[in-house]
Nucleic acid binder design. Structure first.
Lengths: 330, 330
DNA sequence: CACCCCTCAGGGAGCGCTCCCTCACCCTTC
DNA sequence: GAAGGGTGAGGGAGCGCTCCCTGAGGGGTG
């Protein structure tokens, strides 16, 4: 039942602990015959190195913390973002032989725990998914010297991040609606304490401003419910609107529902465009036009950034491009 | 930059390492004044115990591996299951002070890595989310003596699990359709190498058998696409069908899409019932009737089961109840 | 042929912690 | 007042590994 140690393997192979260690760690200064006899013993005994002992002396853990900082019913709770990011990150890190320690920071208390945990040297680096601009965690983590990469832009200016071209994507959507001949284009924003939301709103506004049109804005919080609610608001405010740009797909889905209930045909009466191009976008009725942002690519880029930082790379941000996927709703 | 050790704290507090250790670990046999002076030193130095060193001697890690065993495009990939389970589990484990090491076992190679990892004693227990009956991992993990709890029933009979009353839930759905006056009730199954799928199919069949009706079955694989495809198949096979029970909501959503495209009204022409009651179910057009299974509750129950196992509890399975949520589609 | 250098295996200290054991001291009891 | 027991602090071994250092041995060179 007891797991074999280096010493046991060494004894069995008839060599020193040092040699076994060298073989295990793939050092080249080992004679082939010693290598073979050690490998043989390792196999026979089913030896697996004790990570704690190794970590104790090397100060490397081969683990990375993925911290999702968000209230329980917050933005990241939305399935697509969370699962896409977590899955992609996990896959990517496993590919390079690193462990993922997943931490949900949902309260101030758990945020403190995260800080202590990270300070405790349990991980080699931290990938942060903290969407709220006011979140104090990014700055706190950056302060403790460990490599930190953020999945998106944060208020902490010293945290390297990967971000979408949000304004550009929104502009893409609005210009598309104008091309389709739409004249009264409204928008449903995300929560405005998020960079994403502000930038998308800014992109929307910029295009309308340039073409001499009025903005029609309703506030949402990136959830389906809020999208439905905001759409009701918009219909009340401006019954003649003929297009809506929702700052994410979930809100667009909510908006579709409201439009359906209100008897407006999509896209005949009102065109709808979302943002993110989540999988569900292709399964709405009618199928949703959306700005594809590939959260998976963004997640992958963030992992690369973090790994580079751990290796001592430069701390510079990365901006991802995006494109419009036109479907039935516009 | 260097982190303080026990010895440093002890020196500062003017006591022995042993006393500091006792205070840190909350032992009661410590005089209050020693406790205070130690706490003071800990605070001043910002001391955080080194987990590796502690783990090396105690053989406890306070970490749990959450292993999601599934091909990249497999069942668990579906956002709702993955994110609900992972979030819930993570939250639950953090609440009891345990770390979550998330591992995606997507290939045979990574499955081998998981085995090595778990064998390496990095974690105190394993929570398994492996849906495919043929998956060899559950049995392999069970063999190595570490506590293992499965989120669902597996082929490995010695792995304690938490499961839904799948047959009961399916029966609920079908009986509801019969109550609504439906006569030709079809079903779209999940992949039949999954217990879930087989049990749901069995529940469907049992009710029809008891009422002297014929089964109309199409195979799906729990994805939206497969649901849409299976629905096309069903319409071709039996154009007169007036109801469909899909073995999960995603397939039900795919089926709704096909029905819409085929010009069938839901529920007027064809009633649709799903299974799982994912959040999106309330946002389809029309809103989907579904068997609520609360994956969150199931996940919580699994965590409890695992924690109990780690404490040396009995290895007995848990069965969760479920209920029908009636919406517009039936 | 002698010497030196280089290669590569072994020895052992030490990473930071826990936990067992020892021992000092005080209180109780006869 | 002496002896015994109980409480609680300190000392130190040892967890399994890495990595520096030592030293043996072989080959090349003058």
């Amino acid at each position: 039942m007891k797991r074999p140690t280096l010493a046991v393997v060494a004894a069995r192979a008839g060599v020193s602990k040092s040699s076994v260690s060298r073989v295990i760690n793939g050092e080249t200064t080992v004679a082939p015959e010693i290598r073979d006899v050690v490998m043989q013993a390792v196999r026979e005994l089913g030896y697996v190195p004790n990570a704690a002992a190794r970590n104790l002396v090397t100060r490397r853990t081969d683990a990375v913390a993925v911290v999702v900082s968000d209230p329980p019913k917050g933005v990241v709770s939305d399935d697509p973002l969370f699962s896409t990011v977590v899955r992609t990150v996990s896959r990517e890190l496993e590919a390079v032989g690193r462990r993922v320690v997943l931490i949900l920071a949902e309260s101030d208390e758990s945020r403190a725990r995260v800080e202590r945990y990270v300070a405790g040297g349990h991980v080699d680096g931290v990938m942060l998914v903290a969407l709220h601009g006011a979140d104090p965690l990014p700055a706190a983590l950056a302060r403790m010297g460990l490599p930190v990469a953020s999945f998106n832009r944060t208020a902490a200016t010293d945290v390297p991040y990967v971000a979408l071209d949000n304004a550009g994507g929104a502009a893409l959507a609005v210009r598309h609606l104008l091309d389709r001949g739409r004249r009264r284009i409204a928008t449903i924003t995300g929560p405005l304490d998020l960079y994403e939301s502000r930038e998308r709103l800014e992109g929307y506004r910029a295009v309308l401003r340039d073409t001499g049109r009025r903005s029609i804005v309703a506030l949402g919080d990136f959830t389906r419910v809020s999208g439905a609610e905001a759409m009701r608001q918009l219909l009340e405010d401006d019954p003649d609107l003929d297009a809506v740009f929702a700052a994410n797909d979930l809100m667009a889905i909510g908006a579709l529902r409201t439009l359906h209930q209100a008897g407006r045909r999509v896209p005949d009466d009102v065109a709808v465009v979302g943002f993110d191009d989540i999988e569900a976008a292709a399964y709405t009725t009618p199928a949703l036009t959306s700005v594809r942002s590939s959260m998976a690519d963004q997640a992958t880029a963030t992992v690369r950034l973090l790994l580079a930082l751990i290796e001592g790379g430069p701390r510079k941000p990365v901006i991802m491009p995006n494109e419009l996927v036109v479907r039935e709703s516009s």
